[in-house]
Each structure stands twice: as structure tokens, then as C-alpha cells.
Amino acid sequence: MDLATVEYVARLSRVALSPEELQLFAGQLSKVLDYITQLNALDTGDVTALAQAVEITNVLRDDVARESLEPSEAVANAPEKIGHFYKVPAVLE
């Protein structure tokens, strides 16, 4: 992974990085990706992807209302709030 790719992926990941971290991660992630590339030695043309090992599908339950958190409990951990609302920097002009 070159520096430009690391910067791009960091942006997609919503993680700011210092110039030192960029350099460090470029080296470390390249090494891990090189290692992962060994999977290319396997022919997987006819193999079906497996996303979950114990394959349970279509899990449904009755749509019944039940007790839940009070609004004040639900927002209690918010770093900044106004009443029961989360406070963020303005996203609209």
C-alpha cells in the first residue's frame, strides 16, 4: 500500500492520521496485504462464498411492542446533547 492509498483508505474509514502514522501504517499494512495475497494460490472458481458458518436464515419474530429505554437513558452517554437530542456541528448552511 502506497501513501496515497493509505490516505484514501483512512479518509473512507473516517480516521485522521498523523504523517508518522501514515508512514508506519503504509509499511505494516503492506506487509499484511502481501501475506494475504497467498490466497491467490487457491483456485476458488467453483466455491460458494461462506459469510456465516452456522447458516441460519430468515429469522423472524412477532412484531410486539415491549418495554424499552427511557429517552433520557438512551441519550445519557452522549458527549453533547440538548434535552433528548444529540448535538452535532451544523450540517446544513
Binding site: 493509505v6 483508505v9 480516521v15 492520521l17 502514522e21 508506519l24 501504517f25 499494512l29 496485504l33
Partner: peptide, 17 residues
């Protein structure tokens, strides 16, 4: 940037990639 340590950042980025 401030909240996550180096290993968590590396894995988030690898997974995003």
C-alpha cells in the same frame, strides 16, 4: 484519531480496504 489505538485503526483500515 484520538479515541482509537493503533491496532484498531490498522484493522478498520484493512477492513475498509
Amino acid at each position: 484519531e484520538s479515541g482509537f489505538g493503533a491496532e484498531v485503526k490498522r484493522r478498520i483500515m484493512l477492513g475498509t480496504f
